[in-house]
Design a binder for these strands. Structure first.
Lengths: 241, 241
DNA sequence: CAGAATTTGTGCGTATGTATG
DNA sequence: TCATACATACGCACAAATTCT
């Protein structure tokens, strides 16, 4: 393993093992190579391997027993999140037979930043937006954190409607938006920020997938801008062509 | 800034500043807040801020001058990589008026892993594949590293054809594949592995966007499986709906 | 069943990296 | 720049649980 640059060796190794487990290198219940072998393979001290394993054990992915070895405890199949014109969180999760849930964790009314004015095509003097922060959960596990912005003048009661119904689709419908479609999605990745780590229960420094999207109504007018951060180790995005 | 294991504070802050610069929080030529202010904002010692700034300076993103301040030297607009049924690397890059380049960095013939057998729909006894490792470059900057697999029995001379033409499209055409389209794309993110860091000239522990795709010919038969790792700080994927 | 071999668990000393003031 | 504290990583040794012969 290559020497440093601000990321501890044990963390790099832990992330490697995590993706190996996810890719099925060792099946659930399967046995990992011995600490001996792993330390030789990564070219590090056994203590370092043990630190990495202990991290994954604490997260319930692995378990070690003295004299026996280290075993894969849980290899949760990653959720798949299709990106298309009509993706709705709850439908997707339900289709994969998991219990969906959204939790309103913050909201507010604020002045739109320039990039938001452009994306929502706000006109002069109507630059106020509602901001809605929602944590998405599947089977009790946090999978994504989304920040949503809506033009405040068009959707004055959006926050309370969402609070009542727990659904953005329904909150928009209450304001006369019968249908909306996803126009464009931008996808990037970066390291999680501390607040994101907290909500998504990620290790600090874990990667997040970020999607930026614009939803438009039937007339093509933007009704919602949304920035969603997915826990990259729990979800995979797919695009069908 | 929150105290946490495995990732140095200065790295977390460097990554934050990098995404802020990319998001245009400070324009090119713009002045960053003083180290004083930044250290207060992140709740860390000024030394730590300086370490983060020095990292970004070494990468040519920032520059500091005594008595004046720290300035944004380079805010390269991120390349946008659209994902659709007919995306070809060179077309995309050219359209954004950058000089594209692909470099063959490795190849080989090997037995297909089970998941490859499934994705390429290989029949029994024809499980050999060609592997092609290509580094993609735009304007002299590495943007992605892709591993490509092809059924060896159908495309016996693929590697040499690619070496001659520098184009997968042409190498496939030489084997009678007039056209192909992208069937499905899976997108995930993880930390770069050491070898990826080396090729993409990434800092260790930097995130990569990973896309897995299957290309099929006009008859719908898989001709290529490809896994591409993008430097997440240099590229953004987009999906048009 | 005894004893050897294997594998994880633990302790200590040292050197270097990270973060503060 | 210096001093201090803690985290990271290494190397060695040995203990404890389990498996193999």
């Amino acid at each position: 393993m290559e020497r440093t640059a601000g990321v501890a060796l044990w963390r790099q190794i832990a992330e490697r093992l995590r993706t190996d487990i996810r890719n099925g290198t060792w099946k659930e219940g399967g046995k990992l190579p011995t600490e001996q072998v792993l330390s030789a393979r990564f070219g590090v001290n056994r203590h370092t391997i043990r630190r990495a394993i202990s991290e994954l054990s604490a997260q319930g992915l692995l378990s070690s027993r003295q004299g026996r070895g280290t075993f894969v405890e849980n290899a949760p199949s990653p959720l798949t999140y299709p990106i298309g014109p009509r993706t709705r969180f709850s439908e997707i999760i339900s289709r994969q037979s998991r219990e969906p849930g959204g939790r309103l964790i913050g909201s507010g009314r604020e002045a739109a930043q320039p990039w938001l004015v452009e994306k929502l095509r706000l006109s002069l003097g109507q630059e106020a937006v509602h901001r809605l922060e929602v944590l998405h959960v599947a089977d009790g596990i946090a999978v994504s954190l989304s920040t949503n912005w809506f033009p405040a003048h068009r959707f004055p009661d959006l926050v309370s409607r969402y609070a009542e119904t727990g659904s953005i689709t329904k909150a928009l419908a209450a304001h006369g938006v019968a249908d909306y479609i996803r126009k464009k999605t931008e996808i990037s990745a970066r390291l999680a920020e501390p607040e994101e780590s907290r909500w998504l229960q990620l290790a600090e420094g874990a990667p997040v997938l970020v999607t930026d999207l614009v939803n438009v109504d039937e007339a093509g007018t933007p009704v919602q801008v949304s920035r969603t951060r997915f826990a990259a180790d729990r979800i995979q995005l797919t695009v069908e062509n």
